[in-house]
Design a protein around this nucleic acid. Sequence first.
DNA 1: CTTTGCATTAACCAAATGGTTAAACTTTAT
DNA 2: ATAAAGTTTAACCATTTGGTTAATGCAAAG
Lengths: 202, 202
Amino acid sequence: MSQEKSTEEQIIAAAKKIFLQKGLAGARMQDIADEAGINKALLHYYYRSKDKLFDIVFDEAFDKVISRLSTIISTNMSLPDRIRSIVRGYIEGLAENPHLPLFILNELQQDPELLIRKFKAKPNFPNLQLFLMEIARAGEQGTIRKISPIQLMINILSLCVFPFAARPLLKGVVGMDDVQFRLLTEERKELVADFILKAIEP
Amino acid sequence: MSQEKSTEEQIIAAAKKIFLQKGLAGARMQDIADEAGINKALLHYYYRSKDKLFDIVFDEAFDKVISRLSTIISTNMSLPDRIRSIVRGYIEGLAENPHLPLFILNELQQDPELLIRKFKAKPNFPNLQLFLMEIARAGEQGTIRKISPIQLMINILSLCVFPFAARPLLKGVVGMDDVQFRLLTEERKELVADFILKAIEP
DNA sequence: CTTTGCATTAACCAAATGGTTAAACTTTAT
DNA sequence: ATAAAGTTTAACCATTTGGTTAATGCAAAG
């Protein structure tokens, strides 16, 4: 292990790894210290408590998930191109952090407060509203089939996110190894976009 | 609380509720005992250890998930009708146990062994193979668009399962309450089937 | 009624776990 | 060089937690 990063950064990196893998309840402070290669007391020296450390990791993870979505969503493209961009970008982003979906969904279920706190800081996702309205408009104009905007959004999200959450299942049931999963994911960047666009074609 | 069930059944019911809600790492034996309204020692008297109790709960949960899928999958219908049945039945089943998806996915990631053990008992999901082959055949015959059978299966599963896993997110981000969620779910029984069938139309 | 065997409980135990502390070590400033 | 400030560690502490036990309750069999 190279020792280039500062202790604080080492701790955050280790905490990310352990928390994302085991969740808040399953993670042990000792695990994080071991992963970082430091004494357990340093975790408290720099970050006070397990909860404080977790909050930082969760916030960062959550930001990573929505910031990417946010930027893609607010580009100036036709709806089909936009959807293609969203799918491609989202799958790409998750491929770099495959543990993110299950981690966030799970911790959110354990403690919905995490979200509330989050949305008091950042305004309530303004670009999402615009996106939903555009879907509604496209439906009216006949550019795409009429479909409840929220339902379509859920469909897009489902198709992008679920495979990462279900990775262990795919591994176990159809014996999919890491390489196959990588290929499957790669193929999905276009396949899912095609699938959605065909489904909402007028 | 009515006291009709035997102690063993009470324990299993309580364990299900707590484990499904908090997961293996987050659940406390005391929580389960309290939920069942009995002394903690009884848990060990009847089921030996936390792990043993968890195994029973997990196995039952997993069976519920795949048995329903299994029976629907092996009916004699046209592929479109079959897909419609799968979607409808699956969403309906999950609506009765909304915690199931996140629970299973999460515990599976914590310990992939759970699956291995499971597939040593039951033969490796024979009807699934048939279903995949039928998708391939329908693709060749032009009944549906050509699509990788596994990808299509993942798409179907994604659209059915993900909303249940993302429930806290929907609650937090678009302020969806229980009633709205119920309606959304109900609508999805047909909407998702339409969506998929339109997407794979030749 | 009493004995026998199962069910149930309160009290207890040992290990794990989040957190603290005092001392040692390192770096920086004077 | 030395003092001061910040960093790191081993040892320790209090609480939580899974698990055990010995005693009590209780129903059915004798």
